Simulated assay, not measured.
Amino acid sequence: MNSTHATVTIDIVLDRQNTREILCALLHAILFHRLFGTIKPQTFEVLDVTMPGVADPAMKRLIEDKVDAFWKGLENVVPKRGEISVTLSKKDQRKAWLGITTYEEEVAWEQWIINAEIRQPKSEQERQQFTKNLASTLSKSLCTMLMHTSSEEGRGAVPPITNSEVSPFPLKISVRVGGVELP
C-alpha cells in the first residue's frame, strides 16, 4: 500500500457505558463524509452531539460487526485500548514483469484511525466530568472530519468517481487490539 495517503487520527477515551454507541456514531460519521454514491442520511444523538450517519443496511451491519469485534477483543486485554481504522482505496492498473501484462492493485488514498481507550470513572463527580469531556471530544472529532473533508487536501485526495455505488472505492474497516488485527 502507498504510504503517501492522507491519514486522519481521532483519539478518544470512552467509558464502558458509551463505547459501542460512540464508536458506531464515529464510524457512521466518517462514512457519511466519504461514501459518494446515493446514500440516505441519518443522524445519531450521542451525549447531546448530533452525528451524521448513513442509513444503509450493509454499512450498518459492517460497522456493528467491527465494533462488536473491538468490544470482544478488549475482554482479555489490559490496558483496554485499541484501534479501528477505515481505509479507502482506489484500484490502479500496474504492469507486471517486463510490462507484458497488467494487474489491478488497491492503493490507499485515505485512512481514518480511531484510537480508543476505555476507562471507568470512579465517582459521580468524575463521571460527570468524564461525560462532559467525552462530549467535547466528539464535537472536536466531528470538526476534524469536516475540516479534513472540506479542505483542499481532503477534496484533492478523492480519486475520480466512476460509478454510483454507495461505496465506489474499496473500503476496509480494520480492528486492532493488543497489537493483533481482529476479524
Score class of each variant (00 low, 15 high):
Met1Pro: 07
Thr4His: 13
Val8Gln: 14
Thr9Trp: 00
Asp11Ala: 13
Asp11Cys: 10
Ile12Trp: 09
Val13Leu: 11
Asn18Arg: 15
Arg20Asn: 12
Arg20Ile: 02
Glu21Lys: 15
Leu23Lys: 08
Cys24Met: 09
Cys24Gln: 14
Ala25His: 05
Ile30Tyr: 06
Phe32Lys: 08
Phe32Gln: 06
Phe32Asn: 09
Arg34Ile: 01
Gly37Lys: 07
Gly37Asn: 04
Phe44Cys: 01
Glu45Cys: 03
Val46Pro: 01
Asp48Phe: 12
Asp48Thr: 07
Val49Lys: 05
Pro57Ala: 05
Ala58Met: 11
Ala58Gly: 00
Met59Tyr: 04
Lys60Ser: 11
Ile63Glu: 02
Asp68Ala: 12
Trp71Ser: 14
Asn76Glu: 14
Val77Ser: 05
Val78Asp: 15
Arg81Leu: 10
Glu83Asp: 03
Ile84Met: 10
Ile84Asp: 04
Ile84His: 04
Lys90Gln: 15
Lys90Pro: 00
Asp92Trp: 02
Arg94Glu: 08
Trp97Tyr: 14
Ile100Gln: 07
Glu105Gly: 00
Trp109Glu: 00
Trp109Asn: 01
Gln111Ala: 09
Gln111Val: 01
Gln111Met: 12
Ile113Ala: 02
Ile118Arg: 02
Ile118Trp: 07
Ser123Gln: 02
Glu124Phe: 10
Glu124Trp: 08
Gln125Ala: 15
Glu126Ile: 05
Arg127Glu: 10
Ala135Glu: 09
Ala135Lys: 10
Ser136Leu: 13
Leu138Trp: 06
Ser139Tyr: 07
Ser141Phe: 09
Thr144Trp: 01
Met147Tyr: 12
Met147Arg: 13
Glu152Arg: 13
Glu152Ser: 14
Glu153Gly: 04
Gly154Phe: 06
Arg155Gly: 01
Ala157Lys: 05
Pro159Ile: 06
Pro159Val: 05
Asn163Trp: 09
Glu165Asp: 14
Val166Trp: 04
Pro168Lys: 02
Leu171Gly: 07
Ile173Arg: 06
Ile173Met: 03
Ile173Val: 15
Gly178Leu: 08
Pro183Trp: 02
Pro183Asn: 13
